[in-house]
Simulated scan of single mutants.
Amino acid sequence: MPEQSAITSEEVAHLAQLARIAMDDEELAALAGDLNHILGNVARVAEVATDDVPATSHPIALRNVMRPDTVGETLTAEQALSNAPADDEGKFLVPQILGEE
C-alpha cells in the first residue's frame, strides 16, 4: 500500500477527539492498522473493477417466480367455521384482548 494513503495514529486520534471518543495509544495504533487493512482491500477491489465488468447486486442472476393469480376453490363460510371453537353470526368468535366492552 502506498505510504501517502496510509492512515496514521495521529489522524485516528484527531477523529476520536472530534467524536469525543477516549482511546489510548494501543487502541489508536490498532484502529489505524485496521483502517489501513480495509483501505488495502478496497484498493484491490478497485484494481479489478473495470468499465467492461457490469455492476451486480447479487452473484447469481435472480428472477421473481410468481404463479398466475387465478381464483380456485375456496371454503364456504360454513366449512371455515366448522372447526372453530366458537362462532357468532357467521364470524369467528375470539377472546377479547384489549379489555374494551
Rank of each mutant, 00 (worst) to 15 (best):
D51C: 14
I21G: 00
A30W: 02
A55F: 15
T50K: 15
A61M: 13
G33C: 02
D25Q: 10
A29V: 03
A32V: 02
A22S: 06
R63I: 11
T50V: 12
H37Q: 10
A49V: 12
P54E: 15
N36Y: 07
A49W: 15
P54Y: 14
A13N: 09
T50A: 14
D34S: 06
R20H: 09
V53Y: 15
H37W: 10
S57L: 12
T56H: 15
V12A: 01
D51A: 15
S57A: 12
P54I: 12
S57I: 10
I38M: 08
R44V: 03
A46N: 09
V12W: 07
L15I: 06
E11I: 08
V12E: 02
L62N: 12
L18E: 08
D25A: 09
A32Q: 05
L18D: 04
D25F: 00
V53T: 12
V48Q: 11
D52K: 13
A16C: 01
M23W: 04
A16R: 01
A13I: 06
R63V: 09
V42Y: 11
H37Y: 10
E11Y: 12
S57M: 14
A30G: 03
R63K: 14
A22P: 01
H14R: 10
H14D: 08
A43Q: 11
V42H: 04
S57C: 11
I60M: 10
L39Q: 07
D34F: 08
A61P: 12
N64E: 15
H37M: 07
D52C: 14
I60E: 11
D25Y: 04
A19Y: 04
H37N: 09
H37T: 09
V48R: 14
L31D: 02
V42Q: 09
A55K: 11
A61G: 11
N64G: 12
T50Y: 05
H58P: 02
I21R: 06
I21C: 05
L31A: 04
A46I: 01
V45A: 10
E26M: 05
E11A: 11
T50Q: 15
H37I: 04
L18R: 04
A19H: 01
V48L: 13
G33P: 03
I38W: 08
V53R: 15
D52Q: 15
R44H: 08
R44S: 07
A30F: 05
H58D: 11
P54G: 13
H14G: 03
Q17W: 05
D24K: 01
L18V: 03
Q17M: 03
H37P: 00
V45P: 02
A61D: 14
A29D: 05
R44T: 05
L28A: 03
E27N: 05
N36W: 05
